[in-house]
Each structure stands twice: as structure tokens, then as C-alpha cells.
Design a protein around this nucleic acid. Structure first.
Length: 557
RNA sequence: GUCCCUGUAGCUCAGUCGGACAGAGCGGCUGCCUUCUAAGCAGUUGGUCGGGCGUUCGAGUCGCCCCAGGGACGCCA
């Protein structure tokens, strides 16, 4: 187990033992102990860890919290890594870490290298993160980028926490939308040859469809003109679909987002999973025929309304496909946990999918949906349209090319998924010099520069004595570095990657402050070696944090 | 009408399980480059935490009721 996490666990244990002992001795009424937690006090003057257990016990026992705190502290065996335990009003117990324990962590971080922060809390649990999964009927826009960044970062963190992670993209390559896409493409194809064909009413009218048709013509010529319409649409559509998927793939790669599995909706029908899932629900008595269609009776499960799974014309709905897909995730591929990141427009889909999960006999805590809220794109005060159906749209690719992948990632990671946000292109660019993105990367580049400078003197610091790191700026830096494992733990528990961005910024801040106050390479060779160790460790933690966020750790800026 | 998300400093946003004086970045105002990167540092300005009631020793955080913004309520996906 990681050292800091171990310390935290030990403190909780110490508190628990002290409380029990006080009860045994009759100094504290024998009430059930509340869940014991330790936190980081907001004010650093109060130490590294604090517990409000006495305050909580005061409520349960009706006694004075300060007295309880004193009693408990008196019963605590001093832990090896703790320098002092103090009681503070109105009833906190504060713990301060020993300086030499802190400085030793520098050696620990250097030894862990890229693996620093890794944990085993996941215990190899098989978790699937499904994200983006945009219909391959048009290019990605910024909103999709948000989900992509959220998902890939979450996957990185879960992997660091010891989960066995599969990143997956669900390709909706069947159904009405694909049909509309195929027909729209066929119309544009015909138009390119001067044939008066109309894009269907519910079709995709964007200019990219004209470009797509032209691209196909350049490669395939006019051969689809002579085919029967049915066949032409199918074959042309297939080519267009492949191209759209390729484009989506490469757009995501620009953002540093990749997937382990690209899962085809069609395969659900070809593999018989759709039938299996449906018959399972039927067996459970959740399926009913009415009004000429087949329904999933979710009202019986507390839902607002029932939902159609098979239309009057016999074709399955999107909902039916998703049922089959989740049947596949849980019952065929047997993921222990499934995390879906959906756009805000899918929020109505959440509760009925939860109902399905229950109906399939899957325990609800294995299924988690994160809704990534809307992004509105603007240039200053001017609103920029990103609708797929309209002609003028700014694609994700254009945004990335304009502001940069790292800036994009950081901006999205600085906000919690359930807050709607404005993405101001002007601001993202104008701020580019003062952007927190560069602030963090600059800290890393600065250290790289120090290392390079030190290397000119062939400085070997492998025997640096970390116990010489005794000043406030040095210890403050270590205190922050040592927090990464906890951040990873928090992100894992809350599924909120944005904590990482704030941590990155905090870490950069303490580093920059340290840098200003402490000269690393100096005439004092012994101190220099110790500080080189410190700075090298800081570089490693910064790099790890940036990597988890999917960002570059630059050597030079 | 029902359901979901949001409302915290001039702006953009954090705020774990209810805890110590409510935080950061940007902006504004002051200072700081002979020395490893000033894309930096130090200081300062700035808040009825949308409003009300309640629970609690203690509420930005929990409950109820309002107000405001956004989204979802298809045999679209």
C-alpha cells in the first residue's frame, strides 16, 4: 500500500482504538462509534490531518467535545510518522507529520518513478468505461470532446488505482439515423453528377456530406449511379460510414483519446444477443404487447412510463439495442462494473436503463452513468453553432487546431461534469499565455531546465541526503507531492476527474513558490544534491499528474 | 405539467463525510529579473454562498417550499 494512504488508515485506526479504550475505561459513554474519517485541515497551521471525531461523539454522548478530545489524545500511542497530536477547539484532534517522514517520501517517489501514485484499491476489478459513442453520421463537436476527455482521464485514473479498465466506443451503425445518413449521402452523390436528388427531410444537410460524397467519387467514380437504388445506398453508405468512423477516430487521436474496443451495434443482432436479452426480459414478465408495438413495462419498476422496444413495423428501437448492449456488457462479457459517459441529451435515458439493469437481475451499484453537461461554444459574445444537422458548424478538430489539445483537455478537466459550461474560443486563445495549462506545464519545464543546468557539472545526486530538506518551501512542496495518491483515490471514489486538474495547479503553485525561495544548484554541493532529488521527484509527480490528464509534460517551453 | 443538472468574488469555476476565519484562476491595484526559464513570485482588492423556512452544538454542504438559467420528457438516437 502507498505510504500516505497507510498513514491515513493508521490514523483512523488510532482514533478508533483511543475511542474504544476510553469507553472501556468508562471515560466515554458506550455509544456506537460513528464512521471515523480524517481530513486535511484548510489551515495548514492546524497540521496535516485532522479529525472531528470528538465533536461527533459529543453529540452522541452529550459530553464536552474538548474533554473527549483530550481524553482520547491521552490514550493514543504515538505513531512513528507523527510529530505531534494536538487538541484544538471546538473539539478537533490535529496531527502533524514528522519532517523526516516527509523528506523520506522524496526517496520513495524517486524509487516509484512513473508508477508513483499507483494503488491496488481496484484489485483488478474489470471495469468498462464507455464514452463518446457518437453516431457516426457526422464530425465530432466540442461537446463530444468533453465526454472524450472525461472518459479517457477517468480510465487513466482507474487504471492507476488498480482496476482492469476497458475503454469502449459503441458505434450506432444500425437504425434510423444511419438510414438517414445513407440516404443523405446518396442524394449528395447524385447531386455531384447533376442529378436533381433531394436530401431526405430528416437527413443530414451539413456541407461535410457534400465533401464526403466528393471524396468517394474521387476514389470510386460514378459506379453507384448505375446500381439499383437500394444497392447503391447500401454500398455507398457502407463506404461513407467507414470514412466517418475513421474521421472520428483520428479526431479523437488528436485529443489523445484512444479506445480498446469499438463495439458495433449491428453485431448485437448478428450475434443473437438482442434476442437473448429480449427473451430474458420476457421471462421476467417485463414485456407486453400493446398498441401494435412491444413495450418494456418500466412503470411496474417505478418509472414514469413504459417504453417501446419493438416498433409496429417490427424494427427494434434504440432503447432495445441498448438493452441488448448492456446484456452483452454484464452477462456475456461479465464486466464487474460498467461506467457510461453520456451527453446531457441522454439524461432521460438513464432511469429506464437503470430499470433494465434491475430487470436483468444486475445489482445497481455495478452500473454508473455520468452525464456530461452541455457545452456552448462562443467567440467572445458571439454564439457559435455546433449542431450536426445545420450547415455551419465548428468541429472538434477545428477547436483543437485553434486552441491546442492540452489546453482543451485542461479547460474541460477544470470543471465538474455536471456543470454546463461555455467554451470561449477567444478566451481560450487569449489566455493562452496565462492559462493554467501552461502554468502547470511550465513548472515541469522549469525543473527540466534545472536538471539540464545541473548536468553540465556532471552532478551525481543519487546519494543526496533528503534529511537536509528542512525549510518551509521544501516541506510544503513535499506535502503537496505526497497527496497524489489521495487525489487518485478521490477521483476513483467520486468518478470526478476534475479534482486532478485542481491538484495539478496546486502542485505547480507550491513548486513555483519553492523555486523562487530556494536556489537548487548552488555552491553548497551537499544541499544541491538533496534539492536535485527533491526537484526530480517533483518533476516526476507533475509528469504523472499531467499524463493522467492526458497532457504533455514538456521538457522545454 | 413531470424528471435531471446548475445558481458561491466583476468574470470562469473548486469546495470530499455537515466542521476551524468560504478558496483558486482571470481581471483591478502595489512591488520583485546581476544568479537554475518573469509563461514566474510576493502582497492587495473583492462574497447577503439565488431566496425563505427547517434539522443540528455547527449548514455553501442535509430536508421542504419558492425564484432564475439549461436540458430531457418520440414507435429519433
Amino acid at each position: 500500500m502507498n505510504d500516505v494512504i497507510a498513514v491515513k488508515r493508521r490514523l483512523i485506526e488510532t482514533l478508533s482504538e483511543a475511542a474504544s479504550k476510553a469507553q472501556e475505561m468508562g471515560k466515554l459513554p458506550a455509544v456506537a462509534l460513528p464512521e471515523i474519517t480524517v481530513e486535511h485541515p484548510p489551515n495548514s497551521g492546524h497540521g496535516d490531518y485532522a479529525s472531528s471525531l470528538p465533536l461527533k461523539l459529543a453529540r452522541a454522548t452529550g459530553s464536552n467535545p474538548m474533554a473527549i478530545a483530550r481524553e482520547m489524545v491521552g490514550l493514543m500511542a504515538p505513531a512513528a510518522e507523527i510529530a505531534s497530536i494536538a487538541v484544538a477547539p471546538p473539539g478537533f484532534i490535529n496531527f502533524t507529520l514528522k519532517d523526516d517522514w516527509l523528506t523520506r517520501q522524496v526517496d520513495g517517489i524517486l524509487a516509484a518513478k512513473d508508477a508513483y501514485g499507483n494503488m491496488t484499491i481496484g484489485q483488478g476489478t474489470r471495469v468498462q468505461v464507455e464514452f463518446v459513442s457518437v453516431n457516426p453520421t457526422g464530425p465530432l463537436h466540442v461537446g463530444h470532446g468533453r465526454g472524450a476527455i472525461l472518459g479517457s482521464t477517468l480510465a487513466n485514473v482507474l487504471a492507476a488505482a488498480g482496476y482492469d479498465v476497458t475503454k469502449e466506443y459503441y458505434i450506432n451503425d444500425a437504425g434510423n439515423q444511419i438510414d438517414a445518413f445513407y440516404r443523405s449521402l446518396y442524394a449528395r452523390y447524385q447531386q455531384a453528377f447533376g442529378i436533381a436528388a433531394g436530401v431526405p427531410a430528416n437527413g443530414y444537410v451539413g456541407n461535410y456530406m457534400i465533401d464526403l460524397a466528393k471524396e468517394i467519387i474521387a476514389e470510386e467514380g460514378n459506379k453507384f449511379l448505375t446500381l439499383p437504388e437500394r444497392e447503391a445506398i447500401a454500398r455507398l453508405g457502407e463506404i461513407g460510414l467507414k470514412k466517418m468512423i475513421a474521421q472520428i477516430t483520428s479526431d479523437l487521436e488528436l485529443l489523445g483519446v484512444t479506445f480498446d474496443v469499438w463495439f458495433s451495434e449491428r453485431s448485437l443482432y448478428q450475434g443473437g444477443q438482442y434476442e437473448k436479452a429480449m427473451s430474458l426480459l420476457k421471462q421476467g414478465g417485463y414485456i407486453a404487447e400493446k398498441e401494435g408495438a412491444t413495450w418494456f413495462e418500466s412503470t411496474a419498476l417505478g418509472e414514469d412510463k413504459d417504453n417501446v422496444v419493438v416498433r409496429g413495423d417490427g424494427s427494434p428501437t434504440y432503447f432495445a439495442a441498448d438493452i441488448a448492449y448492456h446484456y452483452n456488457k454484464f452477462l456475456e462479457r461479465r464486466f464487474d462494473k460498467v461506467i457510461n459517459i453520456w451527453g446531457a441529451d441522454h439524461q432521460g435515458h438513464v432511469s429506464r436503463m437503470k430499470a433494465v439493469i434491475g430487470a436483468l437481475g444486475i445489482s445497481p451499484e455495478r452500473f454508473k452513468v455520468i452525464i456530461s453537461q452541455m457545452v456552448t461554444l462562443r467567440r467572445g459574445s458571439e454564439l457559435v453553432k455546433i449542431s450536426k444537422r445545420s450547415g455551419d458548424l465548428i468541429t472538434l478538430r477545428e477547436v483543437i487546431e485553434e486552441v491546442g489539445a492540452d489546453a482543451c483537455r485542461f479547460i474541460f478537466l477544470s470543471r465538474s461534469a455536471d456543470a454546463q459550461m461555455d467554451f470561449d474560443l477567444e478566451l481560450a486563445k487569449k489566455e493562452s499565455m496565462d492559462n493554467p495549462v501552461y502554468y502547470v506545464q511550465y513548472a515541469h519545464a522549469r525543473i527540466a531546465s534545472i536538471m539540464k543546468f545541473a548536468q553540465q557539472d556532471q552532478m551525481d545526486f543519487s546519494d543526496g541526503d533528503v534529511s537536509l530538506l528542512t525549510t518551509e518551501p521544501e516541506l510544503a512542496l513535499i506535502r503537496k507531492m505526497v497527496l497524489l495518491p489521495e487525489v487518485i483515490e478521490v477521483v476513483t471514489e467520486t468518478m470526478e476527474p476534475h479534482h486532478l486538474a485542481y491538484y495539478a495547479q496546486d502542485l505547480a503553485t507550491v513548486f513555483h513558490s519553492f523555486y523562487k525561495q530556494c536556489r537548487v544548484v548552488s555552491d553548497d554541493k551537499v544541499l544541491t544534491r538533496a534539492r536535485l532529488k527533491l526537484v526530480q521527484a517533483a518533476k516526476s509527480v507533475l509528469a504523472r499528474t499531467l499524463t493522467l490528464m492526458g497532457m504533455q509534460a514538456l521538457e522545454k517551453m
